[in-house]
Simulated scan of single mutants.
Amino acid sequence: MSDEDRVTDSFRRHLIADGWTVVTPTDRWTDVEAVRGEERLIAEAKGRTQEKGIDADIAHGQLLRRMTSNSPNIRYALVVPTSSLWHAQRVPAHIRRLLRIDLYEVTHDGQVNHRPS
């Protein structure tokens, strides 16, 4: 299992425990998609890599490409391991808020922490 798989699996379990239903993504390149009532969450996950900064930048770009609807009910998430958290936070919090991008950290033992913008 790759580290990205570990991060993705941990995040899926977290979502289910939080009342979300994980669904088949509408975009085949999306890592995780979930619904809860009228809400939809589209997530990009990254695992531990040698190029943490580049991977965080790529992940933000991937989320931007998935923003095909202006519905206020859709949120986006970047899900990263602890080792990449600082790199993902280089996009300023106020920008992530404007874009409705939530940041989630997955620890080495699989705990998921929401890092509010």
Rank of each mutant, 00 (worst) to 15 (best):
W29V: 10
E44K: 03
T107C: 02
G53T: 14
S2V: 02
T82A: 07
D55T: 13
D18H: 09
Q62W: 07
S71H: 05
E38R: 15
S10G: 08
V91E: 04
I58H: 11
A77Y: 01
D3C: 10
T49W: 03
Q50T: 14
G37S: 01
T49G: 14
D27G: 04
E38Y: 13
R75W: 03
H108T: 10
I74N: 01
S117D: 05
D5W: 04
S71R: 08
V23T: 08
N113V: 10
T107Y: 05
H114Q: 09
A59V: 05
G61M: 07
V32K: 00
Q50H: 10
I42D: 01
T68W: 13
N70I: 13
E38F: 13
A88F: 08
R66W: 12
H114N: 05
A17Q: 12
D109G: 05
K52Q: 14
G37C: 03
T21Y: 06
M67F: 08
E105V: 06
W86A: 15
L98C: 11
S10V: 04
I16T: 06
R13L: 09
S10I: 07
E33V: 05
V23L: 04
I95S: 08
D27R: 08
Y76P: 03
S84G: 10
D57A: 15
K46S: 07
S117Q: 09
N70C: 12
E51N: 15
T21W: 03
A17R: 11
N70F: 12
P72H: 04
S10C: 15
D9K: 09
R66N: 10
K52F: 10
H94L: 11
P81R: 01
S2G: 12
V112G: 05
P25N: 08
V22S: 06
T8K: 03
W29M: 14
A77P: 00
R90G: 09
A45Q: 09
E44P: 00
H87F: 07
S84H: 12
S117P: 15
D31F: 12
H108S: 12
S71T: 04
L98S: 11
Q89R: 14
E39C: 07
Y76F: 14
G110D: 15
T8C: 02
G37V: 00
A17V: 05
V106L: 03
H114K: 04
N73W: 14
T82E: 11
E51T: 15
E38D: 14
L41I: 06
A45W: 03
W20E: 01
G53Y: 09
P92V: 15
V79Y: 04
S117C: 09
V106F: 04
S83V: 13
E51G: 15
E105T: 08
R13Y: 08
V32Q: 02
V112R: 02
R115V: 13
A77R: 01
R48I: 15
V112I: 07
L98H: 11
N70A: 14
D5V: 08
W20K: 03
I42H: 02
N73R: 14
P72T: 10
R65M: 14
I74S: 00
H94S: 10
D102L: 08
S2L: 08
D109W: 06
I95A: 11
H60E: 05
E38N: 10
G53H: 09
M1R: 11
H87L: 04
L85R: 07
V112W: 01
R6L: 09
A43V: 03
P81T: 00
T24Y: 09
S2K: 11
A93P: 05
Y104R: 02
V91Q: 06
P92N: 14
L103W: 00
